[in-house]
Amino acid sequence: MALLEVQDLHTYYGNIAALKGISLEVNEGEVVTLIGSNGAGKSTTLRSISGLTPPREGTIKFDGKEIGETAPQEIVRLGISQAPEGRRCFSRMSVRENLELGAYLRRDERIRDDLDRVYDLFPRLKEREKQKAGTMSGGEQQMLAIGRALMSNPRLLLLDEPAMGLAPVLVERIYETIAEINRQGTTILLVEQNANFALDVSKRGYVLETGTVALTDESSALRQNPEVQKAYLGA
């Protein structure tokens, strides 16, 4: 059984259908990529899973449990956490305070360990522990957004365009860390518009077009697909 099973998802913004029947699966331990152009429904898929924009139809099963109508905080508690699109760090809070908010629902003793884990993954964040998030560069804020999402110690991490607006050298660094997070045992579902790096680290991929799944395959096969190359890989 897959860790996450999404069946025939329909999600609306008002009367506008953003998702028109998306189905996908993420197995335990995998990295899965959703690629697609603007408006294809990538972010909406993640927002539906994390409960921020609940779906109108369809089912979302996490670890065998239906979560389609579950409140966002309960979904975080169950073990899904999201680094939202555009980073959305709390700019007037320090790096440390941002990370502590990531552990908002936790009261256990292991928070300290997870903080150390995040600082190991992103040493830059430790250096800037007391700095206000809003004064940091885009790359550092992206690290913080990922680190903050890790602070809830999720089983499934949702990353929404982690490379957005970053220089190529930084994108590479971020993706190295994403691969490392996965090696440490966290399953990852990520969304990316410019899919080169994303397909490198992921095992499988889904191509979304106007709210539906147009294509799904192993990442290596998607990389070779001429249409995917033309549309999403800048080849």
């Binding site: 921020l52 905080q73 956490s81 939202p84 709390f90 700019s91 007037r92 908010l101 990531g102 908002y104």
Partner: peptide
């Protein structure tokens, strides 16, 4: 403070809005 700064981010961290 989290809700004041960014409601969406707060919700995705598990803050019950």
């Amino acid at each position: 403070i989290a809700v004041r700064e960014d409601e969406v981010a707060a919700a995705s961290m598990g803050v019950p809005l």
